[in-house]
């Protein structure tokens, strides 16, 4: 009879036996450097995405003529195309019509372009959740439009949008994994070379650990923030 258990043991043993700690120690600094690049690009791109998204959401909410159409078109394009294709086009395509973006700029622009559309939708939902009563109350105590947006609408819109902003942020951080296609030495770039030379167990382990170390803290911070906001009773 075929011995499943033995086969299974062998199976896992093989995986374990392959773990080469010398390899891990040798390449860990490389992963650390790559992780720093990934984090910096992600941070810059996401901050820009939030600003761009907020601007688009406000333009659409207040129905600014002309600009609202531009913003609407941009949101549809950014949300309905993959980041990888956006990057390919930005990096390899646009140079041909004279628009030269270097790798780092291209990565940040690409991430901000993609994220801006998603963030705009998050803020739109937040702004729409601010009730008419709240707006009229703000007006009735004599706030100007600018003050109304700043002190009444934005804080409430942010509170409502936090779960979506959180999901978008994590999504964007995961999307950074494609940056190697525009020749940036990020985590995947480092891993790709090592994977081709074998040692895939160690390499993938370091890759997973690196991403977990980057994304988990962000995820935890956001869920704490969400809980705090929910406790404050913003939703009602």
């Amino acid at each position: 009879m075929y011995d499943c258990a033995a086969k299974g043991r062998e199976f896992f043993h093989q995986g374990e036996a392959d773990l080469d700690s010398a390899f891990v120690i040798e390449y860990a600094p490389m992963f650390a450097r790559a992780a720093v690049l990934t984090v910096s690009l992600a941070a810059a791109g996401i901050v820009l995405a939030v600003i761009l998204g907020l601007a688009c959401a406000l333009i659409r909410y207040f129905k600014v003529p002309v600009l609202r159409r531009v913003a609407g078109f941009y949101i549809e394009v950014s949300r309905n195309t993959p980041l990888m294709i956006q990057l390919f086009f930005l990096y390899y395509g646009l140079t041909r019509i004279g628009i030269l973006l270097e790798g780092v700029t291209c990565a940040i622009v690409g991430l901000a372009f993609l994220g801006g559309g998603y963030m705009a939708e998050a803020f739109r939902a937040g702004l729409e959740a601010v009730s008419r009563n709240q707006i009229e109350t703000g007006l009735s105590i004599g706030l100007s439009r600018r003050q109304l947006i700043r002190y009444v609408m934005l804080p409430q819109a942010f509170a409502v949008a936090i779960p979506a902003i959180s999901a978008n942020t994590i999504f964007l951080m995961k999307e950074t994994s494609v940056f190697s296609i525009i020749a940036l030495p990020d985590l995947v770039y480092v891993a790709k070379d090592l994977l081709k030379e074998g040692h895939s167990g160690e390499t993938n382990l370091m890759l997973v650990v690196s991403y977990l170390m980057i994304i988990l803290p962000v995820s935890i911070i956001f869920s704490l923030l969400e809980r705090r906001v929910r406790r404050a009773g913003f939703s009602g």
Binding site: G15, I170, A191, L195, L207, V208
Partner: peptide
């Protein structure tokens, strides 16, 4: 949700296919 899809692809493509035969 936390692990990038690309990393999952690497995990299954390289580690599963090469290491575990």
């Amino acid at each position: 949700r936390v692990i990038p899809i690309l990393v999952l692809l690497f995990l299954f493509y390289y580690t599963l296919s090469r290491n575990w035969g």
